[in-house]
Design a protein around this nucleic acid. Structure first.
Lengths: 260, 260
DNA sequence: ATGCCTTTGTGAACGCGTGCACAAAGATGG
DNA sequence: CCATCTTTGTGCACGCGTTCACAAAGGCAT
């Protein structure tokens, strides 16, 4: 996973497991596609295939929402789209602010997937005065000074952080102070927030690193376990360990530990 | 989490649990930050705080790699950076291709976090002939026609898909046919790949939807459980269910189920 | 109405991941 | 050399998530 929850150790809101909640958007997407093709009903088997999950898992997931299926037939597509949307809270409008309008922030602002799911970009905010007023995705970029007033005036409760790592915690603190209670963090840093604030993170490079791990394993296996075994025990002595990444350190990793 | 593995049901490679692998990049980042500040050693407690995890979990994670700590002292930062890098396969160079140079693709191309972790962007590929030759992040965009030759000539095994959803599966198939065995998918679609190919996905809108769910729950709770309970049982009749998102459908969701 | 066929909904078993709590190990000071 | 203190490494228990397998339920044909 590219993301993980922070704080609040796996609360199961009203009885819906966290793992199920994470899959609901997946089902919703598959159902929306079916709805657009005017497919009236779908079986758990078909829908599971479309969503890329096990059919038993899908049925159990839906069972937490209630009994919305018809035995022998399947699920009513339109009805299920509505039920899941309601459960996820997508039947209402969620204004969001995006802070940090660099390459990634601009990409997010232009991303159609937000608007189509009940999310409305209330404002784009950047610290660079040169950016202020420039239109991005049809919206003028606002300066950081306006952050608090924008959030209060629009009743925004969800914020997206797409700043460099170094600025993320500071931005986060201001968002929280202004009343934001949910944060989607794209900056490669661990954010600390007070209780009651949800943080989800998306880290691009972490995903690649996980892929690299499996890729390496595949490469090691391909010439038989012997090759992998032979390469392993000869762990280099401490002295010869190259300082991988200990050099200049690009990307702007920020020191996140306080000196003891 | 913004991502999830596909295929291969939670293989624990050589004994390292999947959950641990997913956290190693987190530890690596925190350690790199310490390394840059020339901190020689760190305790599990400090490092855990920096990585945003439980210290017991961190120690257990490290125990899968071996006994790299010193009791009463902690872990040698440089040594641990090297060990984790090696375990993740980051001591070697991983050429990657990025397919789909829109807003997101460009953002990824410019993202410094890749280069700093042993990943090298071998090529940027786009289907639009008008893009061909244009420099993005210092690299000329190549046309899709060259996809196969680029992958073969550079020995690329990791591909990043940042195309619209409608093109993703087709691109995926070509990548796999050309020899790619690991794919990071940003398109909002379920990709189907043959065995032996790893797919990880990052879905921006899914993360927001999960946040919305929790946000809704918070809003419902704030006026006491009574309010939430009162709003629930009056589930609207099937007929009155608005077709949430059943309209035009932006974003380019693609039908992913085959008609039975 | 009756029997058959399809598909849901779920009880139960299993496995993974997490966190506690403590013994073992090493450093440090006398 | 011994005592004490710190911190690691891990055995154990618990809870969540996944999967199997099947009974119950509804549609449909006869």
């Amino acid at each position: 996973m590219a993301t993980g929850r922070t704080h609040r150790p796996a609360t199961r809101s009203r009885g819906i497991p966290e793992a199920t909640v994470a899959r609901l958007p997946l089902y919703l997407r598959a159902l929306t596609a079916l709805s657009e093709r005017s497919v009236p009903t779908v079986s758990s088997e078909e829908l599971a295939a479309a969503a890329g999950v096990n059919s038993a898992k899908l049925r159990k997931d839906f069972s937490y929402l209630g009994s919305y299926g018809t035995r022998g037939v399947g699920y009513d597509v339109e009805y299920l789209v509505y039920q899941i949307s309601r459960e996820l809270g997508l039947t209402q409008d969620w204004p969001v602010v995006i802070v940090g309008i660099g390459n990634l922030g601009a990409a997010l602002a232009n991303y159609g997937g937000f608007a189509s799911r009940g999310f409305r970009v209330a404002a784009l905010i950047d610290a660079d005065p040169a950016m202020a007023g420039k239109p991005v995705a049809g919206l003028p970029v606002r300066h950081t000074d306006e952050l608090e007033s924008i959030i209060r005036d629009n009743g925004v409760s969800i914020g997206v952080i797409a700043t460099p790592a170094g600025a993320a915690q500071q931005v986060c603190d201001r968002l929280v102070a202004a009343g934001i209670t949910s944060i989607l963090n794209f900056a490669p840093t661990v954010l600390s927030v007070p209780d009651g604030v949800d943080v989800r993170k998306v880290d691009l490079s972490i995903e690649l690193q996980i892929l690299a791990f499996h890729e390496q394993r595949k490469a090691g296996e391909e010439s038989g376990p012997a090759a992998a075994a032979a390469a392993r025990p000869g762990a280099p002595a401490r002295a010869s360990a190259p300082a991988a990444g200990g050099g200049k350190g690009p990307e702007g990793d920020v020191p996140a530990v306080m000196p003891a």
